[in-house]
Amino acid sequence: MHRYSLFIATSLLFLGCSSVSDNNHTPQTITNTQANRAVTLSHIRAYLLIGNIEKAEQLFQGLGHTENNTQTLLILSELKAAQADSLGAQQAFLLAMDNKIASEKPMVSFVLLDYFCTEKMWPAIEGYGRSINSAVISADLKNTQLTTIGQCYFEQDKWQAARYWFEQLDFSGSISPTVYLALAREAVESTQYVRAKDLIEKYDTVKSTVNAHTLWTAFEVYTALNQPQQAIELGKQLRILFPNNSFTRRYILLTKRERIQAMKEDPLPSLTLRSSLPLPLEPKSATNAFHIIKKSETLYQLSKRYGVTTSELMSWNPDIVIDDISIGTEIRITPLR
């Protein structure tokens, strides 16, 4: 009897251990499956990012049954968009959002485009744009969606891509002022300055609001067009309206570098001796009452050019700071009368 009891106990212990082992194995298998799926999804995203849509499609098909989880559906939406299947992209996106925006189906394309833009999903945006171009929709709706796509590239300083999508617009309809600004900036990039001047003037005519990015972009255009007064005014607006913005910091660093470079090229006489040959004097006539600061110019240079002292220039221009003069600043070079 004792031996029989010992055998039963040993058997039960063995079965119990096997049961525990099996119970521990199931969650581990599930975890491994989830991990494999996550790795595959990351590979699909990588192929989409480099524009290999065919390989991304193959990997997605290899997943077999696609679980209705947010991440899988969002990647499916991105894949469908890259394939120019806008309807499939929207359907997958709605499912990913758990139908929370199902009541907004007419507007889902803008929500989806905003998502693609925020995540910088360029192949998806390109494919979606192609589907919009070939779709039979109203001119106003097409303009709005193409403007959204162009704006996305504009905000990332992708000037040529922004120009391409903006040029697909129907300019006989209503056009966002930002379109003219972005096209002006791209024209500067391609050294088409006459075109840039025409476009920036259109932008200034129709603009109604500004932000730090548009102010900075307009500043770049006017600087390239050698219109310092407008550029200076935009720089002032940046510093006043958006003092802590990254574009404002970029503007401050740019002007600071220019001042440092100017000081290196033409230090004050107390630091080093300049050539004994004087700069040609210009008469103090009524037409020469003011001088517009150009790149690398300093008060010391102006004093030599106009035959005055730096102290006089400072007294005639009490608002300027000797080491903080921006390009385009108007400097009085004759006494007040």
Rank of each mutant, 00 (worst) to 15 (best):
R3A: 15
F7N: 09
F14L: 14
L15Y: 10
S18F: 13
V20M: 14
S21F: 11
H25W: 00
T29A: 14
N32D: 13
N36I: 04
N36M: 12
R37V: 06
N52W: 00
E54T: 09
G62E: 08
L63W: 00
T66M: 10
E67F: 04
N68P: 06
Q71V: 04
T72W: 07
L74T: 01
E78M: 10
K80A: 11
Q83Y: 04
A84F: 01
A89C: 05
Q90R: 15
Q90S: 15
A92Y: 01
K105H: 13
S109N: 09
F110Q: 14
L112K: 03
L112M: 12
D114Y: 04
C117K: 06
C117D: 07
E126V: 10
Y128T: 04
R130C: 06
I132L: 13
N133T: 10
S134G: 08
D140K: 04
D140E: 13
K142N: 05
N143G: 07
Q145K: 00
Q145C: 02
L146D: 04
T147G: 07
Q151K: 07
E155F: 12
D157A: 10
W159P: 05
F166Y: 12
E167H: 03
D170F: 04
S172G: 15
T178V: 13
T178D: 09
V179Q: 03
Y180K: 00
L183W: 01
L183Y: 06
A187Q: 01
A187N: 02
V188C: 13
T191I: 07
Q192K: 13
Q192T: 06
A196R: 03
E201D: 12
K202T: 08
T205P: 15
T205I: 03
K207N: 14
N211F: 02
T223K: 05
P228S: 11
Q229Y: 01
Q230G: 02
I232M: 09
E233C: 05
G235P: 04
Q237H: 07
N245I: 01
F247W: 05
T248W: 05
Y251S: 08
T255H: 07
T255F: 00
R257H: 09
E258L: 15
A262Q: 01
L273I: 13
R274T: 09
S276Y: 09
E282Y: 05
P283Y: 06
S285C: 11
F290R: 09
I292D: 12
I292L: 14
K294G: 15
T298V: 00
Y300A: 03
V308I: 08
V308C: 02
L313A: 04
S315M: 11
V321S: 12
V321W: 08
V321C: 05
I325T: 02
I325G: 05
S326M: 11
I327A: 02
G328N: 03
E330Y: 05
R332S: 06
R332P: 00
I333E: 00
T334V: 13
R337D: 12
